[in-house]
Design a protein around this nucleic acid. Structure first.
Lengths: 377, 377
DNA sequence: GTCCAGAGTGAGAACGTTCTCACCACATCG
DNA sequence: CGATGTGGTGAGAACGTTCTCACTCTGGAC
């Protein structure tokens, strides 16, 4: 009786390398696998005595149900996919956090994939997630044009929620803000301060070449909508017709830094700039310093996304804040509803934005002149 | 022949709602499931003609292999688990990015879970990941004391790599930096600038009460090691014995803000402060401004982690930089080796840090006096 | 005493893949 | 001409769970 288990057992592997199964638990408890499964799963009828014996056996064996096998039979994985451009961008980090918190509290786990705004990688990521049979996917589309894979995904009946950016004609929920209106409001803030030469820095993953006048728009909905809002504000103030003030750059502060230097070196430089992303505004601060321009004296700045450092720089940065965490949370909520079987027609969830006025906006200097290293006042 | 498939087929669900299986592909190609599986999987021997027919059928049906079923039989999920404190912290965001990039290029996906430095949530997260049968887990332990679940995990033979922080006595790889030496070097930088009253702000998830002199250390290895390094530097400069200058706070800039205000309000305030985290240094900037202290005139600052905003604030912040992306990448690399079967004894991978000297450190003022709103020089 | 409800249990199918094994046809060799 | 591969194929087991079905046994109603 000293080592009863090893005598007749044909066990192929040493004990610690194989995780305990329902069968192991059942054998130790002296019941059938079916009964053990019932006791463990808490369904069907099991006598209290049996239930206890099974529970003890499971504890003794360190049994943990195999989620893979469970997914196999139930057809669901309790896993959601999240496809974002770049988790290092504070906006997406907050979105991911909100998404994950809601998912977790509903018993779901999350697989996160970065695309770096590359449609090819987005397509691959979606393929992987589908192959892994996630129950649903939330995705911030890298391109508004290369979206064939998204249409196929939706057509196959799988839950999909679009994050932050919409795709025209795609029957899927969209969770985000009204980018056009928000951008318009941000630029109107500059107009109200008296600015007439207002530049815009927009981020786009693919491309990076400056946008031609009336030329090809960046393959990106968010950027496009914000550019529209920028133009709305300009034209309703009667300030349109200066395409050189719009710069589309990569989502890198270094690109924005170069762009703002270029703008400030123009014969007639802008007196204010609107940035479509917090990373870009970082570059603007650096580039303005490079050019010897003092914010807000020589250049006013309104940025997008209230990054945590925005109120410790001098001057603090005026921003159009969007509720990133809430966007992620709302997306998870929407997606979970779809996963649960909600087949109502796609909804567009628009979350509120707010303009946070800080010190980076001031009235423009009256005289029109090249910015130089400013003399003492 | 108009609708041949629907006549005798006992198919229970409408076509578009059921993903195609190997059997479906095989039926369409007119071969057995075994042959279709061989053709799809690229193993065994299949005639070129058959291979083409199967490929065509798979394409026509939009077949995508069921990863769950594959995991079921192969026993591996091609998924890695990543357990971090908070993905919104730029350090962990970068770690996650590095980890994910390496994992993805090796064909692995990543499940990320946040713990908010809560050992209970960490334990739960590990349980979930094990239940999901991930092939390996990388984890930055929330506590160096409550680590029973980690010991059990390692004892069960499952690959585990510790991120950023070690756990005493745990037979697992650790990837990170030499926190003690890095902290020491950072503080020595302040000593070299002439400071003698040097404070430290350390972050800890649990607790938040100020650390008693020789009292209970925060349940956190990184913080502890950095505190040791701080003390090393002080004692080798003959400056020890001022416990009031050490503050352990939550990982929030608001907590740091309050702490630095407290420190600056002391009868004999510190002339310099060392921050163990970028979030805390954000609070220091705000708190110093609250108190009317000018950096670096009234207070010198050395922070940890080179966040992207650190060189656009005025003055730019001197930091001890650690390679967060590389730490994540190296952790994934280590973990993948373990997953592949490497059973060599645990290694400790120590990545280099570098002190980035910027404008936030200056010599202390000679006179000892309370900090007030500074007059013009 | 007979019948039935229902609690408790065990046998076994199902999920979709991988992969072993057996089989067949054909070519090659002794 | 029979023995021996060999390329190509199909049948079916295995993974570990959930869950349906059938069975036994008990107690109560008639």
């Amino acid at each position: 009786m000293a080592r009863p288990c090893c005598y007749f057992s044909p066990m192929p592997l040493p004990e610690p390398l194989r995780a305990a199964t329902v069968g192991d638990v059942a054998a130790l408890a002296g019941v059938s696998s079916a009964t053990a499964a019932r006791a463990l799963g808490g369904y069907g009828t099991v006598s209290p005595r049996t239930r206890d014996r099974v529970a003890d056996a499971a504890h003794a064996l360190g049994y943990r149900a195999n989620g893979i096998a469970r997914s196999m039979v139930t057809g669901q994985t309790s896993t959601l996919g999240l496809v974002v451009a770049d988790i290092e961008n504070p906006f997406f980090a907050a979105v991911t956090r909100g998404f994950g918190d809601v998912a977790r509290s509903a018993g779901y786990d999350v697989m996160v994939v970065n695309t770096d705004e590359d449609p090819a990688r987005e397509r691959a990521a979606l393929g992987v997630l589908v192959g892994r049979r996630v129950d649903g996917v939330a995705l911030s589309p890298a391109s508004s044009r290369e979206a064939g894979h998204l249409h196929m995904h939706v057509a196959s009946g799988q839950p999909l929620v679009l994050l932050d950016r919409g795709v025209r004609g795609l029957r899927a929920d969209v969770v985000g803000i009204d980018n056009r209106a928000a951008a318009r409001r941000a630029v109107e803030h500059l107009v109200a301060a008296g600015h007439r030469r207002i530049a815009m820095l927009a981020g786009a993953g693919s491309g990076g070449r400056p946008l031609q006048a009336e030329g090809v728009p960046p393959a990106l909905m968010t950027g496009l909508d914000r550019i529209r809002g920028y133009r709305d504000a300009l034209s309703s103030a009667g300030l349109d017709g200066l395409p050189d003030y719009l710069r589309v750059t990569h989502f890198r502060s270094s690109a924005a830094r170069a762009a703002i230097r270029e703008l400030l070196a123009l014969p007639v430089p802008p007196t204010a700039v609107f940035c479509s992303d917090s990373l870009l505004s970082l570059g603007v601060l650096a580039g303005a310093a490079d050019s010897g321009a003092v914010i807000p004296v020589d250049l006013s700045l309104v940025a997008f996304d209230d990054a945590d450092w925005m109120d410790v720089v001098t001057p603090a940065v005026t921003v159009m804040d969007q509720p990133a965490y809430d966007i992620g949370a709302a997306a998870a909520d929407r997606l979970l509803r779809r996963v649960a079987g909600d087949t109502a027609r796609p909804r567009r969830v628009v979350l509120p934005t707010s303009l946070v006025a800080r010190g980076s906006v001031a009235a423009p200097r009256t005289a029109v002149r090249r910015v130089q290293r400013p003399a003492a006042p």
